[in-house]
Every structure is written in C-alpha cells, then in structure tokens.
C-alpha cells in the first residue's frame, strides 16, 4: 500500500477530501482486538459514530481502493438511512469504476437504496437486470436473482 497505492495522487485527493484517515499498527491495543484484526492490511470504513460499515483485507491498487472506499462511504450512509447521500456514491462508483471488484456490490446496494427511498420494487428488478447483463458471474447477481421476477 505504501509503495504503490497511498502515494497515488487520486488516492490522496480522494481520502483527504472524503474521509478522516487513521493509521494504527496491527497490534495496537485495544483497537486491534476490538476490531478482531487478523491480517494486514485491514482497511475498515466506519461511519461518523464509529460503527464499522465496510472492511477489506489485502492489497488494493489505486483503481480498486477508491471504488472500495466509495462503497464503504455509500454503505455508511445507507445503513444510517441517508439515501440521498448513499445513492450518488454508488452511482459514481458504478459509472467511474465499472470494472472494479466493488462495482457489482454497488449496483446491488444502489438498487436497495433506491428501493428503500421510494418503496418502488422496480429498482430491485433494475439492479438485477443490470447485474445479469454486466456481471453475470458475480455473486451479487446470484444474491439479486430473487428480484428477477418482480414485475
């Protein structure tokens, strides 16, 4: 992370303007025990109250880290019921980083966020259709498959 990803200009700009960044040793007590850290790097997105919303383990290049963090921020807002803030995060992730590992999950949660904010189930069906078309092999397509029958 220190050799490739963290010195990357886009990564620096994204983290500095969107998040509060904290870095601690993997054996720092009691934090490492509280978060049950077993391997490094472990990257966790917490919401403004300190609740964990997203976690990755292992190296991520810049073009994977930025969408992964976007997903973390989106999920932090979604789980707090802040749909108007969650939706643009997932939309940007999907449009700017469609080939990233985080994209299929973002399509799924974009559907969930749109459904929860409108109660209109067509957004779940749309999410499934997009997943099946763009990411047929993704586990998120399987997870969304019950929505395929929504009319």
């Amino acid at each position: 992370m220190d050799a490739v990803t963290y010195p990357n200009k886009a990564v620096i700009e994204f983290i500095n303007s969107n998040m509060i960044a904290v870095r601690v040793r993997h054996d720092q007590r009691p934090l490492a025990e509280d978060f049950k850290v077993k391997w490094t790097p472990t990257l966790i997105t917490l919401d403004m109250d300190g609740t964990e919303r997203h976690r990755t383990v292992g190296f991520l290049p810049p073009e994977e880290l930025i969408p992964s963090l976007m997903s973390g921020i989106g999920k932090a807002h979604l789980e707090r019921g802040e749909f108007a803030k969650a939706i643009p995060r997932f939309e940007m992730l999907v449009s700017k980083y469609p080939k990233s590992g985080a994209a299929p999950e973002a399509v799924f949660f974009l559907g969930v966020a749109r459904f929860q904010s409108t109660q209109d189930p067509k957004f779940l069906k749309k999410a499934y259709d997009q997943l099946a078309a763009q990411y047929p092999q993704s586990e998120w397509t399987t997870r969304a498959s019950p929505y395929s029958t929504i009319k």
Partner: peptide
C-alpha cells in the same frame, strides 16, 4: 500525502464535526 491521524479519539471527534466517515488502516 494522506493526512493520517494516529489517534482514534481525535478521528471520531473530527468525523462527527466534519460529518465524514473514517478510514481505519491497520498496518504492519
């Protein structure tokens, strides 16, 4: 460079006051 903090308490205060989520990096 990334403006890393080293103290979780400070991070939580800033997260609340600036309404931003936290990136917590456990490193070796």
């Amino acid at each position: 460079e990334i403006q890393w903090l080293t103290d979780m308490g400070t991070a939580l205060q800033r997260a609340k006051s600036e309404n931003k989520p936290i990136l917590l990096d456990f490193f070796n």
